[in-house]
Design a protein around this nucleic acid. Sequence first.
DNA 1: ATGAAAGCGCTAACAC
DNA 2: GTGTTAGCGCTTTCAT
Lengths: 339, 339
Amino acid sequence: MTATAGSDGRPATISDVALLAGVSVPTVSRVLTGSARVTPGKQDQVERAIAQLGFRPNPAARQLSSRAAGAIGVLTADTSIHGYAETIRGIEEEARANGTAILITVIESAEEERVEQAVEAVLSHPLDGVIALKFDPAGVAALRRLPRSLPVVALAGARDHSRSQVLLAEKEAGRALTAMLLDLGHRTVHHVRIPSSSRNSGRAAGWRRALQDAGRAVPPPLDTGWDPRDAVRLGRLMALDDQVTAVFCGNDEIAMGVMRGLIDGGRRVPDDVSVVGFDDHPLAPLWTPSLTTARQDFAALGRLGVRLLREQLAGGGRVCRSLEPSLVLRASASPPRSG
Amino acid sequence: MTATAGSDGRPATISDVALLAGVSVPTVSRVLTGSARVTPGKQDQVERAIAQLGFRPNPAARQLSSRAAGAIGVLTADTSIHGYAETIRGIEEEARANGTAILITVIESAEEERVEQAVEAVLSHPLDGVIALKFDPAGVAALRRLPRSLPVVALAGARDHSRSQVLLAEKEAGRALTAMLLDLGHRTVHHVRIPSSSRNSGRAAGWRRALQDAGRAVPPPLDTGWDPRDAVRLGRLMALDDQVTAVFCGNDEIAMGVMRGLIDGGRRVPDDVSVVGFDDHPLAPLWTPSLTTARQDFAALGRLGVRLLREQLAGGGRVCRSLEPSLVLRASASPPRSG
DNA sequence: ATGAAAGCGCTAACAC
DNA sequence: GTGTTAGCGCTTTCAT
């Protein structure tokens, strides 16, 4: 039971196996791929030889002649942000169930050079197709540079008719969350906006819509990056403003930061200020007070994306699907103190 | 400016480029790889032809003849757990800086079949080497099945002299955290244990050591999985026991769950019960009360892992490096109420 | 500096 | 069923 062929350290090849098994190379290939039947006796000898040599088919050679990579590329921004991480988890899960691996490339920023680099990286590997997370401008830019000939599916972001896509229907949830706050008696609802693929993400659009529907002024949204520590600063700032009694945050991690800042600034949540988030982060129910939010099934987004890509590879056309978030009412939103 | 060669949809090959540029195939290869100088004039024609045809070298063919994949495999458990996610982020970052992509395969559990499947998946792709996260039993099992001939580095877990490895020196931090609690006046410190590569993770060993050093009885550790909701249940249970005044949790997310359970059970943190975590999760400083913990630089772990792999690929030998966590004292630990 | 020829390790096409 | 013959699209000798 040796792992090498002959005396040298060179890995065994299919012809080593053929030689040892006393059959031809294509016969070995046949038992490898199961593409045709082989006499049980030879089948056995081949399997024995494979085991004895510790033979593994060379993936590159295999792909060069068969044209299937068995891998899909994933283009994404920072993988440690909850929504991205969960989506990737879903992609990996579904891909693996299908015997497919995923090759991840992070787009560091929306700068031309970074985007180009990420796309280059993806295209320089043997891939059957690509899934691009289009939560942010970097994803949008990358998507634009992907060759038309490559099977691609876009996840989230604005509708793009030129490719298969899974949409996140966030607008209605954003509207409902805001309307709920208004119904509670708040005069207006402030919004802390996270980076998004377009000027207004679905959630922000829903927020705006709810305020307009209720005939309220729309306060200028506050912008933040992904780091919750930035949100703490914004929370401290908002603590200074008595007009702020309800805040709709772009996501749960930002909401947690804002709550912290508000509390640092001497305000109580939800007694003085109500705070709601978006996405339903796993820690949202554990927070004190537990966080009211809209649940997004990012893992399902990822899984669905892989399925659409698979359909496309099987010759299907461009498809568009949509996923709806659901409201999760918890303790961080309540009526304003004095109305 | 067409993206295809000829009238069919077939992607352009190097010989299409050679034909159009009026040079030989190897010459095109030379400008592609920069392996040898080419007359500026021809260089120009070749580049023009490449652009005109939208030519991209076929990665599989390239790899078959040159033997470098430009990708490394990553074997990991659930990617959405903080420590794993951050480590992967570090790996990706360092790999990308080096023009290398990462192919991620998740090991679903430590079951033989799952492990085998994950290893198969990794080996069936063109890879220069593999980095395995050895935080848990699944990682350990996978590592054992990886062929000796493949360049591999192990991240975290118990020392394994047969491969390059980056160790997390958690024992001392676990000891210090526990000793700190004891110094505060707590009679003993309870431990909630997360899954780990060996029966006792470094952090748990440090906890045990501190108690033994202080001559205290070692209470049986409580076991939990990764889901913070399980920790909430444990917290509720612990709230019932007056003997519990200090809890050292296997990681921060678990600590947050335990705190929630404790509070649900009517105990105050840290007034009635002190709780400390491990890892310094990004939300740890934002929690109420802010969480005392030991900071681990998982991203550095990942980056270092890639560097060791690179050294190995360049012909270097097996190396072992170690990373030390640092204590972060915040508000969740305080002296016990009555001493 | 450049082209002709060989070969990377496998699968596909075609005889038998 | 099985072996023989051709490639897949590149890089790498090796002449020139």
